[in-house]
Design a protein around this nucleic acid. Structure first.
Length: 504
RNA sequence: GCAGGCGUCAUCUAGCCUGGUUAGGAUACAGGCCUUCCAAGCCUGAUGCGGGGGUUCGAAUCCCCCCGCCUGCACCA
């Protein structure tokens, strides 16, 4: 166990994808930096994500909002209260316990939201001792998952780093609704950083204290939602789901959208499950059996979600299916909360009716998604190390080499490289043997390699090698950029370029 | 946060128990030679004991503290 994780991290570090932040000083738990390949991959992932999800609606738009939010807004959202746990540590065995749970275990009454002083008083009154060793419990102290900040010279304006990007969309809903001429559904997407003071960050970029979210908040009229997002268009998409009751099963099963609706899920929600699944299976090329939605039961759900399925990808390095995102039906919780907190009316008028729009949140952890893609794509065998990234996401699109470092081949290869690099992520390499250069490109996931040989000098063709099959065809160097773009964007099949070149 | 394990070149690792080595190897990397398509070969080169304190004539090695990583528990939108 753990070796897959080690192999992956070794690749990431050696090649320039990602590594622990500040590792010059020994590292900084919960923080990771991306190197040149990781940053490029992330940019491309964001581009694919934006084009797909903004493309789902005519009224879906990207916005960009602050990472620091004042206390009042996070009080209204519920985060100040619900993101805080009161911890009580045993003086004898040092075990930490949640104060509210200790009290609830005795009284069977809701105890969340008590202050530390109230928790101390209750513990004394009820004579609660450490459930583990019966030792005496120490004083209660608050632990909030949000990073507090003191804003301004006085430091009296309390604020926090945002624990999720979503609040930026809710805070700006009214403005955008007006600017976009009062139409629902309205989609507001944010790609940005969020911060949580995780107690024990672990497992690479899986649980971090600073991370990148890509979220689409869809504001809609609950009265007409199922008509707005009809299940008809996704009827032919069986959805891979593990229901809450069967979440300990290792996999998932395909269920017809109609079955899920019959189980009580809203049709508009099932509609979006199918769309998210298409993104993973088609755009990110995740193998079907390694993808699933996992339903969360009431205990596991966040305080604001009415329906919640995790988006999960099966990852060898992390020991199985792990969450990379979620589809959350947040109802009117957020807009109603901000309406109350700000004392502004956030309802809108649709067809003469006043409604507070409901929100469906499609939420993605970008770092988790990148890790998952790299894990799924990395094939490490005694004979080859290949990163099978989807072509549009590969940080290096094409390697350009001279077959030999002499006879004018490097000059010709470099000139082809210079023509390509304007519109493509091309890389020139003449170090080592040709086989070594192919191996280098395989390991960073470059889908193609173009090699200049003596025939190039005579007829202007180069060999073009495809990463996954290692097959080669001869193509004209003059149209290489267009050919590569067609291949990367899926307009051309590699096989259609011509007969494969025989290997000597 | 608790418990256990761990930390040596870019990567994987030998050395640590039993203190004294020019800290060794492999891979990778750089330069050169060779080479007409898949990590070949030869020559040359650079890079390391997580950080800080202590013990000692002498510390990668023994002790303490810190940082980080892994696993389990707890926590987890």
């Amino acid at each position: 166990m753990g070796s897959r994780y080690d192999d992956l991290l070794s690749l990431f570090v050696r090649r320039g994808f990602l590594w622990p932040a500040v590792d010059l000083y020994g590292g900084f738990a919960g923080f990771y930096d991306y190197g040149h390949l990781g940053a490029a991959l992330k940019r491309k992932w964001e581009g694919v994500w934006l084009s797909y999800f903004l493309g789902l609606g005519d009224n879906y738009h990207l916005i960009d909002t602050t990472t620091i939010l004042p206390e009042a807004s996070l009080k209204a959202s519920g985060h100040v209260d619900h993101f805080t746990d009161i911890l009580v540590t045993c003086t004898k065995c040092k075990e930490s316990h949640r104060g509210d749970q200790l009290i609830e275990a005795v009284t069977h009454e809701e105890a969340e939201g008590l202050t530390p002083a109230e928790v101390d008083a209750k513990i004394k009154e009820l004579g609660i001792r450490c459930p583990k060793c019966k030792g005496e419990l120490g004083p209660a102290r608050p632990f909030n998952m949000m990073f507090p900040l003191a804003v301004g010279p006085s430091g009296r304006d309390r604020a926090f780093l945002r624990p999720e990007t979503a609040q930026g969309a809710y805070l700006n809903f009214k403005r955008e609704f007006e600017a976009l001429r009062r139409k629902l559904p309205l989609g507001l997407a944010i790609v940005g950083r969020a911060y949580r003071n995780e107690i024990s960050p672990r497992q690479g970029t899986y649980r971090m204290r600073e991370f990148l979210q890509a979220e689409l908040q869809i504001f809609f009229d609950p009265e007409t939602a199922d008509a707005e997002f009809p299940p008809g268009s996704i009827r032919a998409d069986p959805i891979r789901v593990a229901l809450a009751a069967e979440k300990h099963e290792p996999s998932a099963r395909d269920r017809a959208p109609a079955d899920l609706i019959a189980r009580g899920l809203p049709a508009f929600y099932v509609h979006h499950l199918a769309l998210v699944q298409r993104f993973y299976l088609d755009r990110l090329q995740v193998p079907r059996e390694r993808f699933r939605f996992a339903e969360l039961d009431e205990r596991e759900r966040a305080f604001y979600n009415k329906v919640h399925f995790d988006i999960q990808v099966d990852q060898g390095s992390l020991g199985g299916f792990k969450e990379v995102g979620g589809v959350h039906y947040r109802t009117d919780h957020d807009l109603a909360g901000h309406a109350a907190g700000s004392r502004k009316d956030l309802s809108v008028t649709i067809d003469g009716r006043k409604v507070v729009p409901h929100v469906l949140e499609l939420s993605f952890g970008v770092d988790r998604n990148l890790w998952a893609l790299l894990d799924l794509g990395y094939e490490l065998s005694p004979s080859r190390a290949v990163l099978h990234l989807p072509r549009p996401l590969a940080p290096v699109a094409v390697g350009v080499f001279p077959l030999l470092s002499k006879a004018g081949l490097p000059e010709r290869a470099e000139s082809i490289y210079r023509q390509l690099r304007g519109g493509l992520d091309a890389l020139y390499d003449e170090a080592g043997s040709i086989g070594k250069r192919y191996a280098r490109m395989d390991e960073v996931g470059a889908p193609f390699c173009a090699t200049v040989d003596h025939a190039t000098l005579e007829d202007g063709t180069v060999t073009l090698r495809e990463r996954d099959s290692t097959a080669q065809v001869r193509v004209a160097s003059s149209g290489l950029a267009a050919t590569l773009r067609d291949l990367i964007e899926g307009r051309t099949d590699f096989q259609a370029l011509g007969p494969a070149v025989e290997r000597n």
